[in-house]
Structure formats: C-alpha cells, structure tokens
Amino acid sequence: MSVIKVEHLTYIYGEGMPDATVALNDVSFEVERGEFLGVIGPTGCGKSTLITHFNGLNRPTKGKLLIDGEDIWAQPKQIRRYRFKVGLVFQYPEYQLFEETVRKDISFGPRNMGLPEEEITQRVEEAARFCGLSPEMLERSPFELSGGQKRRAAIAGVLAMRPEVLVLDEPAAGLDPEGREMILSQVKEYHKQTGATIVLVSHSMEDIAKYADRVLVLQGGEIAMLDTTANIFARADELVALGLSVPEVTKIFLQLRAKGIAIPTDVYTVKYGRDILMDALKRKGGGQHA
C-alpha cells in the first residue's frame, strides 16, 4: 500500500480574495512505501506547497491527502500524529534552532511526542550519530556551530522523531560540495537502515539522479511527469523546455548519441556512464584485435 496518497488535491492561496493564486491544481499521485522520490520543478511550481500538505501544515482547498490510507483531515484535532509520522525538513532548517544546547534542540521533537526521558536520550544520540555530530557537540550552543553543522543539527532534530516518511526541501542548498555530499549520503543511509520513505525536493539534477528511484516533475501546480529516474532523464528536451535540465553526464551521452554512437539514453549517473563507455570501448577494441 502506498504510504502517501494525494487525491485531486487543489490548493489556493488567499481564496476568495482578489489576488487568489492557484498553487496546486488537481494533483493526484502516490508515494510508495520505502521508495526514494525526487521532486523537481522550476521555482514557484508548487513544490514547497505540496510538501507542506504531507504533514498537514497546509489544508487542501479541495481534494484529500491520505497517509497509510487514512484521510489526515478526518479529525483535524489529531493532525499532530501525522506530523510525527511524516518528518519535514524545511529549506535552511538551521534558522529554526532555538535551544541552549544542541542536545536540547534535537530533543524538542521527541519531547513533543511525549516520550520517556531515556528514550529521548537514546533517540537524540542516534540522530546525532546519523548526522555526524560528535557527542561533545551535543553540549554546545547551536549558535556556535558552523553553517554545515547547524544544518545537520537541525536535520537531526527531525530524524530524532524517527519519521516513517522523511521529506526534505533542498537540504543541501548553500553548502559546499563536501557538506552537500555529507548531508545527502546521510539521508541515503537513513533510508537504507530504517527503510523509511524519502521525498527529496532539489534543484540539483545531479543529486536527484544519484539518489532518487522515481522522480516527480511539477510545473505550474500540475504534474508534468512522474516516472523512474532513468525514464525522466531520457526526456531531456522536455525537461529543458520546462526550464529544468539534466545531469551533466546525461548531456554528454545525449550528444554522443546524436553523433551516431550506439549508447542508451538513460545514462544519468557517472558510474553507469563509465560502465557504458568502457563497454563501448571494449567492443571497439575487441573488434580491432579480431
């Protein structure tokens, strides 16, 4: 069964006002349990609005949102239950840090869940380990940390709730390549170890290509495409027309193909690309020897 099911969801900002704008228009799709879904789309296409529906921060103007088959707005008073089930990491999450120590800040979520003290300590330490924060960092003020460390502390604050679905909005924005790599590989690690469902919103096609199983492309508040990563990046022309792009390696392979070299169109990771190239070279080399 799908973990999140979006049914004909429409969301209008400022409904009934002269400046009402339709952010999402009749969107329907499902997020499968345990998958790694990438969400891409040009700025203002409704990505952020969509993900704030996943944990009930926004209420659909029309349509439904089901988590584990339950309509989350059936009992609005119970909405907090779904916030613990679906962990949402916002853009620049370090701006939400507020406690005296990193430990206290990470425990904010678990404490709101009403967990016993021992369990909280255990979860905080586990989340910190996941995010690469050393035990001595836990006792420091979050405002003393570096930018990348702050970001990881904030993500740990969500991971400590052990969400079944982890939704991240541009978690690596504004970080250096090393910081990017660190955060995304930790997310992947969480995915592998816990089997949690991940929804990753990103503008970086490289990151999406590297981690996502499936990709959802949004455009103007509607679904433009939803398919496996390989199939999505094979449609490079359409992506470019939407103001998006494809990973650099895909660009190169599409150009090679245009020059008449027989290679598949679904090359979207460097590793796979290398294998294909080696293969092609071997075939060529083998031909010469024969």
Binding site: L57, R80, R83, Q96, F108, N112, M161
Partner: peptide
C-alpha cells in the same frame, strides 16, 4: 510564518 511551520513540523502546539 516559516519558523512557526518548522516548529509545528516538530510537533509544537
């Protein structure tokens, strides 16, 4: 608004 959303996402009431 943003900060409130972020804290609500962590279960703040």
């Amino acid at each position: 608004d943003k900060i409130m959303s972020a804290q609500k996402a962590r279960g703040a009431e």
